[in-house]
Design a protein around this nucleic acid. Structure first.
Lengths: 135, 135
DNA sequence: CGGCATCCACAAAGATACTG
DNA sequence: CAGTATCTTTGTGGATGCCG
């Protein structure tokens, strides 16, 4: 439980897992599915901006990691239902807390960004713009 | 605090922030700095596998978001010390909990992956290998 | 020591077309 | 509807060299 328990070794398997669950869409997919099972295009419509390809890949990865199940409900027309698993629910909590953090601290972060960018602009006296990320 | 508080709109600013804090190295950098301030190459040596470029970018982003401070300790030889901020400490907790989850559930996830990959292999009867991600 | 600039390779993202 | 396949474009990572 100590912070030191984080292992920094490159062959620590939890590193790869961390990268797979902390990705752009997984948190939102799990949040949607935590309400109730959803079909593909239903998830897609709720996650504004996700491409079909990205969502497919995300769902595959979630399924492979045992966080969601994929069930073919009917053929012609094909209907597939995705459901969160018990394991997925255990992950959804820390993930939503992280999201919660972003909501609560957005103002502070924004202020920090403006201060940082202002500092960089001051350095323009050198004639070289460092190109602050537009974000 | 409700799960529904997650916003799925593409212009929700918390989305971009989430992507910036849930990246490959930030969690580990903050974990290292939560112990005590570190200099650049010290961080680098503790985070096995990080390239200098990746670490620089990560520290810049953390600095811009107000999560760490960068202080030039001495010139010639240049020494730069990075320190976690109060804001950074508030983030470090949910981040380490997420990491904790990966440690606790690695076995379950691995089992799920093997089951999934076995299922895919069975489908090879079709003659078409779906190309399970090597991970 | 702590970077930044450049080049290159590879991976990921997007758009489009097609299928059962 | 829920994908797959393919192509193109963009982004990211590593390696190298240079600088203050």
């Amino acid at each position: 439980m100590e912070l030191e328990s984080i292992c920094f070794s490159s062959d620590c398997p939890s590193r790869g897992l961390f990268d797979q669950i902390a990705d752009k869409w997984s948190a939102m997919v799990l949040a949607v599915l935590s309400e109730k099972p959803h079909r593909f295009n239903l998830i897609r419509r709720r996650l504004e901006g996700v491409s079909q390809k990205a969502l497919t890949q995300c769902l595959r990865r979630l399924e492979r990691n045992g966080l969601v199940t994929r069930r073919v409900v009917s053929l012609s027309p094909v209907a597939v239902e995705y459901e969160i698993t018990a394991l997925g629910r255990t992950l959804q909590k820390p993930l939503s807390e992280l999201h919660q953090w972003t909501l609560e601290n957005l103002a502070d972060v924004d202020a920090a960004r403006e201060a940082f960018d202002a500092r960089q602009s001051d350095d323009t006296f050198s004639g070289i713009q460092l190109g602050k990320p537009a974000e």
